[in-house]
Design a protein around this nucleic acid. Structure first.
Lengths: 193, 193
DNA sequence: GATATATTAGAATATATATTCTAATACTTC
DNA sequence: GAAGTATTAGAATATATATTCTAATATATC
């Protein structure tokens, strides 16, 4: 087995996520993560092959978690009203997982999953995007049948609007509870105006 | 006078903005900008003291332009309905100035105006933020008098929602004309639900 | 037309930081 | 308790790229 690691892989990625949320991807250096997590720089290369792999892991951990919550919420929504409520998943996620929300919300995916990330990580990111697009198509067919702009409107309403509302508060603060009513009203209006 | 520059300062910043929109701030190297603008690397240091100054110039040029448009639009809005129409300034800006919209919309300000940017640039960014906050306060007092959450709702509705809606399409595409009706309906609902 | 000057041009250097390497260490299994 | 191994630990090296430097060049002014 060998000497035990100071941190589990999950705890290590969580520590790295805090650094990424605070400093942004460009300043998320191996030295900064090493210091914040309390592990030597060399040890990081026992876990991961490169800095690009680390940045990708940070993003994928956040995206996996958000997407699981979001797809579950949307899958259960069988009416426009239910979908507007499900859209609150974005602000709820931001309250529960602030650093991961900052990573997902305040940066482009490409800043974390770069062209130099390992092929495996790139593919996971592509797969997540495809799954999300597929879910949007399903919801559009269910809630806005016959609307040629259905998919676009679903994306704007269920993803774009909540994202933008939350972003007003990130990264400094957590989005206040009260904005959920504003978001729900806005999403509803975008879906049925 | 000396030898004339290949590019005006504005054209140079415009070329750098295209690079920043395409590659993101982290990959906006002096070499990449130099190649894209067609000016030698050394010349860049005749114009600006450092890469951090260049990134700040890119962001400030975009922010100056957007803020001028936005404040003008909001200043003229004397009703909630007019404000909802004025909120379309965000999508209109994205159609007219795609690269600058990507810079402003898809990244955190701190990635462009870093801690190492010249003091003068940092101050300009702070001043812009203060002006915007002041404008939001004014609009809240005018359109939602007596609402203790007025300022927060104005920020979510007039900035957050349009930003998020546009972001669904950036950076790959320009936001389609048709989403403006969705945005207007959503903003209106967020302001008067 | 000569002089001064700002810029071009790109090579040389400096610097930051990603990655590798050597040795020591703490656990598991036999 | 001995052997094997994964990790700690951090110094050494490599690499990328920001910055500086030297020389040449094109324009304006006198």
């Amino acid at each position: 087995m060998g000497r035990p690691a100071l941190l589990s892989q999950d705890d290590f990625i969580a520590a790295a996520t805090l650094v990424a949320a605070r400093l942004g991807p460009a300043k998320t250096s191996i030295a900064a993560v090493s210091k914040a997590a309390g592990v030597p720089t060399g040890s990081i290369y026992h876990r991961l092959p490169s800095r690009d792999a680390l940045l990708a892991e940070i993003w994928l951990a956040a995206a996996d978690r958000f997407q699981a919550m979001a797809l579950a919420a949307f899958a259960a929504a069988s009416s426009i009203e239910a979908a507007a409520e499900a859209a609150l998943v974005t602000s709820r996620f931001a309250r529960a997982h602030h650093a991961q929300a900052v990573v997902l919300n305040s940066h482009r995916r490409e800043e974390f999953v770069t062209a130099d990330a390992p092929q495996e990580h790139r593919e996971r990111a592509i797969k997540l995007a495809a799954e999300l697009r597929e879910a949007m198509t399903d919801i559009a067919a269910r809630l806005l049948p016959g609307d040629p702009r259905g998919k676009e409107r679903i994306a704007v309403a269920l993803i774009g609007i909540p994202l933008g509302a939350v972003r007003v508060f990130l990264p400094q603060a957590v989005p206040p509870q009260e904005i959920d009513a504003d978001i729900e009203a806005a999403v509803l209006a975008a879906l049925r105006h």
